[in-house]
Design a protein around this nucleic acid. Structure first.
Length: 922
RNA sequence: GGGCGGAUAGCUCAGUUGGAAGAGCGCUGCCCUUACAAGGCAGAGGUCACAGGUUCGAUCCCUGUUCCGCCUACCA
């Protein structure tokens, strides 16, 4: 049993890479449906394939790895399935930026070559995050790495699309959608971020057709959209305006007249002027109002959100105005419209107004409601079962508080726009017969942002798609062979929505699906609850007939030390790789776990990580200590024949095992981490190791062989208990212990054992701790140096405790660094003695030499004061009739007991005070 | 506008059936005591946001207020 020499400080760098390689080579993370044990499966929330690991990933992944390693050690058949996401818009943007730097563009390249280029980029940078995940110690089954654009997953996407289409849950239609004029694509509702801004409210007068002296004043925050107005709405019950309903107003700056309609839904009489302009082509509410009143839609912006001359012409805008504003963005056009209205005396007033504007979550450009044909998923039929699954507890959301959030969103869910006008992604499996649809295929010659001439193909509303798993060869209508494939791709979340089953092989019926679906736990951040989690639930239920996971654990967002969201532009990001380099991976993992309190964001500062680096080092040194003494003989006799420290630490360890297991079951990583930290540092290191030193250092000690065994056993068990949190350190140390097996990774996780518990030892320990603490305090008060041996006396009011103290004597003598006499206080010296008191326990320490007793006196006085306050409080309560009558008897008894003990302490302290004053000669 | 969460030591946060306020970090003092100075020991520091209510008793339960977050929303 040769033990290795350990360095004085733990050096994570050399250790981490080495062990990860070993674990990997030995295939510990490899899963198989044939493995024994109840399956436990987590699918990773796939990070962007071309991204790199940020601290949010580090948190998300650390927690998953803790769960997986814990379950693996418990003997479950674990699978942690890794993968990456193609992140359509984001990735396309990155590659486009590269092209731009080269003076090229995706249009110049063409679709096919552009996509090739993205694959190249994926090949070049796609492994970055995977390597970083390994650095974090993630025990994923890397052989099963999946990518949303893989052949298998693409097949799943195709299958789902076709089936949903066949079930009439996917449809194509011209709707107002959120459009990013920079990405030039539609976005789903939740891809729009709302931001409060200070805007202006413009009041514009619309003269009545028959009598231009009478005007109807409407209010708007976007005056330029008035050019596309097709009606004005007033409330049907509003006496100010309802007589106008059915009449017409002249739309300023145009040659059009538009009707006044009554609409109780759109109009809030209290707001603004009480009259609302309706622009169905550029506002979601107006779109719906337009449907109610069969109003025409007049788009006046193009796809880049520039005023469109064709549209303006159609809208009957004055030609001279068109020539001024066509091609202008809103920022330029608005003042021009404002001026034009002012010139005609139709701008009634402009007021400050705060409002929310929508921005593209990828590029922060202001999104425009834009009328265009898109693909949608009819979501209500899918949402219904997804609501029930959560309501009925088939899926548990943790912390529970988010459940209502989920349900609320699901109940009010809108159809999901799934088409994106980009190239990188799963192209929609829809084809159009060119001859049958010739009227609907609109090809427009235009130029790209970089000036490349391009053809924009728009498939107008009315085009009839053929949706199929593969390209059709013949048109069933005209028997033609010329097809145009829908150029749009699917929202990335469409494919990630299939993740829990597509990664397991669906639509094939694989053994993996059978074993691991439904997966056990999903770990994710709140930000993608709707984007991803909700959609996985809907699609999982639809296509697998069962929920995709049992538990959804939602963790916090990681912020900087000031609570600011981390962002590259703010420069406040904590780079997990840098942190791992600096403090070690285990320290980072433990930090994140310990800060993962539910419902609260994590404010991360490097000092915290440094603190846990120190913790790692503490453990390291505890192991070094153990190694100093492990060479001697070891015997493992029955527990009850072992020494007090041994039995105590075994009991405490047992408690810690119980706590950690309990907290992990409840996803309380923070509490599990705190329990480990406290046990290891403040019980094992601070007390146990100190308590056993005399025995270990005494060659003649009878306890030593059993203590050596307890020492190594408890250390070994603690390492296993800690391993999911700090995998590298624990493996490194564990391998140096005698009689070790192959790897700690595949060792059983500790389980509590009631026979190891000893309430008696724990209670005696508290007495010991109390005694030692008083001794140490006295030593400091009297300025005795820590090493200087002291003579002291100890007594206790309580007979049982006195008995215990007898047995504990060698321990507190050792920890107090001195000799201790257990004698009744009545026989204590009356001179030159400092006496400290606590809960019936008294310790006395000889005052020698010329010491300043003021500090000691101050402490006594302070304690007296505190106790007097507490005595007063207890006396007050006990004097109350109500308290005696209504409080539970055990509480009353407890209060009496405490009062009694405090009074005893008070009299002791009084005599101590008297002595001190006498010694000072005051 | 609606919903949710938070307000506890200088800082970050625990506090689970209401019955003596806790941790980590930081701070002060003393110590290089043969595992660890990335350490040890001892300390200081809190009308548990505010105001009411329920209760014998409230950090905890209820109501209201203030101040922060977050989510959500079509007030033009």
């Amino acid at each position: 049993m040769r033990t290795r020499q350990l360095d004085k400080t733990y050096d994570p760098k050399t250790v981490e890479a080495r062990w990860y390689q070993v674990w990997s080579d030995r295939g510990y993370f490899r899963a198989s449906p044939d493995n024994p044990g109840q399956p436990y499966c987590i699918v990773i929330p796939p990070p962007n394939v071309t991204g790199s690991l940020h601290v949010g990933h580090a948190l998300n992944h650390s927690l998953q790895d803790i769960l997986i390693r814990w379950r693996r050690m418990q003997g479950r058949n674990t699978l942690w399935l890794p993968g990456t996401d193609h992140a359509g818009i984001a990735t396309q943007n990155v590659v486009e930026k590269q092209l731009m730097a080269e003076g090229s563009s995706r249009e110049a390249l063409g679709r096919e070559r552009f996509i090739e280029r993205v694959w190249q980029w994926k090949a070049a940078s796609g492994n970055t995050i995977i390597a970083q995940q390994k650095q974090l110690g993630e025990s994923c089954d890397w052989d099963r790495l999946r990518f949303t654009m893989d052949e298998g997953l693409s097949k799943a996407v195709l299958e789902v699309f076709v089936r949903l289409y066949e079930d009439r849950l996917i449809y194509r239609g011209e709707r107002l959608i959120n459009w990013c004029p920079r990405c030039l694509t539609a976005l789903s509702d939740i891809e729009v971020e709302h931001e409060d801004v200070k805007g202006k409210m413009y009041s514009i007068a619309y003269p009545l057709e028959q009598d231009s002296t009478v005007t109807l004043t409407v209010a708007t925050t976007r005056p330029e959209t008035m050019l596309g107005d097709t009606a004005v709405a007033v409330h049907p019950d509003d006496p100010r305006y309802n007589r106008f309903i059915g009449r017409k107003v002249r739309l300023p700056l145009t040659d059009r007249t538009i009707p006044v309609v009554g609409d109780a839904i759109l109009v809030d009489r209290e707001f603004g002027t009480g009259a609302v302009k309706i622009t169905p082509a550029h506002d979601f509410n107006d779109f719906e109002a337009g449907e109610r009143h069969q109003l025409p839609r007049l788009p006046i912006f193009d796809h880049r959100a520039l005023l469109d001359s064709e549209g303006l012409k159609t809208a009957g805008v004055y030609a001279d105005l068109i020539s001024n504003i066509a091609g202008n963005p809103v920022s330029k056009a608005r003042p021009q419209i404002e001026q034009a209205l002012k010139d005609r005396g139709l701008l009634v007033k402009v007021e400050d107004h705060k409002m929310a504007i929508g921005k593209c979550y990828r590029c922060k450009t202001v999104v425009e409601p834009y009328l265009s044909p898109q693909w949608f998923i009819k979501i209500k039929p899918l949402a219904e079962p997804a609501i029930q699954a959560v309501e009925r507890g088939r899926i548990r959301i943790i912390p529970e508080g988010w459940t209502n959030n989920y349900l609320g969103w699901m109940r009010d869910i809108k159809d999901w726009c799934i088409s994106r006008q980009i190239w990188w992604g799963h192209q929609i499996p829809a084809w159009y017969c060119r001859s049958c649809n010739s009227r609907f295929i609109h090809e427009q010659l235009t130029t790209s942002a970089t000036g490349t001439p391009i053809t924009r193909i728009t498939l107008l509303q009315g085009a009839v798609p053929i949706v199929a798993r593969s390209a059709p060869t013949q048109c069933p209508e005209c028997l033609g062979h010329d097809f145009l494939r829908d150029p749009d791709v699917l929202d990335t979340w469409f494919s990630s929505g299939l993740w829990p089953f597509s990664t397991l092989g669906w639509p094939e019926r694989t053994p993996e699906l059978k074993a691991y679906y439904p997966t056990s736990t999903l770990v994710t951040g709140l930000d993608i609850l709707f984007f991803w989690v909700a959609r996985m639930i809907m699609l999982g239920l639809k296509f697998m007939g069962d929920v995709p996971f049992r538990d959804v654990y939602i963790h916090a967002l990681v912020r900087d030390a000031e609570g600011q969201k981390m962002s590259k532009s703010k420069g406040n990001v904590i780079d997990p790789l840098h942190v791992m380099e600096q403090f070690g991976t285990d320290a980072l993992r433990f930090t994140l776990a310990s800060m993962a309190s539910p419902g609260r964001d994590i404010k991360l500062a490097e000092e915290r990580i440094e603190g846990y680096r120190n913790f790692a080092n503490k453990i390291w040194n505890a192991a070094r200590f153990a190694h100093l003494y492990l060479d001697g003989p070891r015997t493992s006799g029955p527990l009850n024949e072992r020494s007090f420290p041994d039995r105590w630490i075994v009991s405490r360890l047992n408690q810690t095992i119980e706590t950690v297991g309990f907290e992990l079951e409840a996803y309380r990583f923070d509490r599990a981490a705190a329990a480990l930290y406290h046990f290891i540092w403040h019980e094992y290191c601070d007390w146990y190791l100190e308590l056993i030193k005399p025995s270990l250092q005494d060659a003649a000690s009878a306890d030593a062989p059993a203590t050596r065994q307890t020492l190594v056993d408890t250390l070994e068990t603690t390492l296993r208990l800690l391993h999911p949190f700090m995998p590298f350190l624990t493996e490194e140390i564990w391998q140096t212990l005698p009689d070790h097996g192959e790897s700690i990774v595949v060792q059983p996780y500790p389980t509590p054992d009631a026979s190891r518990r000893s309430a008696d030892m724990e209670q005696q320990f508290l007495l010991l701790e109390q005694t030692v603490s008083l001794l140490r305090t006295a030593r400091v008060l009297l300025n005795y140096s820590p090493g200087q041996p002291i003579q002291f006396v100890v007594a206790h009011d309580d007979a049982t405790r006195r008995e215990h103290l007898k047995g504990l004597q060698p321990y507190f003598a050792h920890l107090g660094r001195g000799t201790a006499d257990l004698i009744p206080t009545s026989s204590w010296p009356t001179k030159n003695l400092l006496r400290l008191v606590s809960e019936g326990l008294s310790v006395g320490m000889t005052v020698a030499g010329d010491v300043d007793l003021q500090k000691a006196l101050d402490r006594i006085l302070k304690q007296q004061e505190e106790q007097a306050k507490e005595i007063g409080r207890l006396e007050g309560k006990l004097a109350s009739q109500d308290f005696a009558a209504k409080a539970p008897p055990e509480v009353v008894a407890d209060h009496r007991q405490r009062l009694h003990s405090l009074r005893g302490d008070q009299s002791m302290l009084a005599s101590s005070e008297t002595q001190l004053r006498a010694m000072r000669g005051v």
